Amino acid sequence: MTKNDPAQASGRRADILERATEAFVSHGYAGTSMADLARAIGIQKASLYHHFRSKESLFVACVTEGYDGAVRRLEAIRSDDAISDPARIRAAMEEIYRINLTTPVGRMAPLIAEIAATIPEVAQAFHSGFIARHYATVTGMIEDGIARGSFAHVDPLGMQHLIFGPVITLALSREMTASFPDRDALYPVDRIRETHIGLILRLLTGKGSADGS
């Protein structure tokens, strides 16, 4: 690979974003300086400014590019003709839980809410780059299922919020209680996820089992 190899540059950028995301999640936006970020990433501060002109632009990149993979995975689930519509919703919801509850980038939501009022560009980028695409993909899955007769004639918009709302609430609750020794007992992710998915599938299919059968 040469110094200007695009693949090498792309990999380096992804590494910077991953390490910066972990630093933001650990120390908050206000509590993390460019010097802190450079140390966490393992480069000189001047080199970090070569990649990103400011802490704000780096944070926006973490939000938009960090979430892009999750959106593309949902889009791939929607286009997978090998699975049924109920199985597609289950796979999508499992991915939504995974990204929001088990990855550093998924834990960025509280930080985004924290700084949205003072840096509206962050909220705008997060909405257009992730929320709008994420919601549209899941709404499309519901509309596909209705058109194919797999799902009842529900309101896709209302169902969209029934899918995403509990996940976001759970993620925020777990972040607020991160220091509690009994957090997992208070907010057991596996149990809540399975109950949530089962309820959504029953609403969509009008059938009694959690897989819609």
Rank of each mutant, 00 (worst) to 15 (best):
M1T: 14
T2I: 13
N4C: 14
A7Q: 15
A9Q: 13
A9C: 08
S10L: 14
R13C: 07
A14M: 10
D15N: 15
I16Y: 06
E18Y: 08
E18T: 13
E18H: 07
A23D: 02
V25Y: 00
V25C: 02
H27Y: 09
A30S: 10
M34V: 07
R39S: 13
R39N: 11
I41Y: 00
I41P: 07
I43M: 07
S47C: 07
H51L: 06
F52D: 02
R53T: 15
E56C: 11
E56P: 14
F59E: 00
C62T: 06
D68H: 11
D68Q: 13
A70Y: 08
R73I: 02
D81Q: 07
A82N: 09
R88E: 12
I89L: 08
I89C: 06
M93Y: 02
E94H: 09
A109M: 11
A109Y: 12
A113H: 11
A113V: 13
A117T: 08
I119R: 05
I119Q: 01
P120C: 05
E121H: 10
F126K: 09
F126E: 09
H127K: 14
H134E: 13
Y135D: 11
A136H: 07
T137L: 05
G140V: 02
M141W: 00
I142M: 03
I146Q: 10
I146K: 06
R148D: 10
A152M: 14
H153P: 05
H153C: 13
L157Q: 15
Q160M: 14
I163R: 00
G165M: 01
V167P: 03
A171V: 07
R174Q: 03
E175N: 08
E175L: 00
S179H: 05
F180W: 07
P181I: 02
R183L: 07
R183T: 09
D184T: 01
A185I: 10
L186D: 05
P188N: 03
D190E: 13
D190L: 05
E194L: 08
T195V: 05
H196L: 05
G198W: 01
I200D: 03
R202L: 04
L204D: 03
K207A: 12
K207Q: 12
S209K: 06
G212E: 00
G212W: 00
S213K: 10
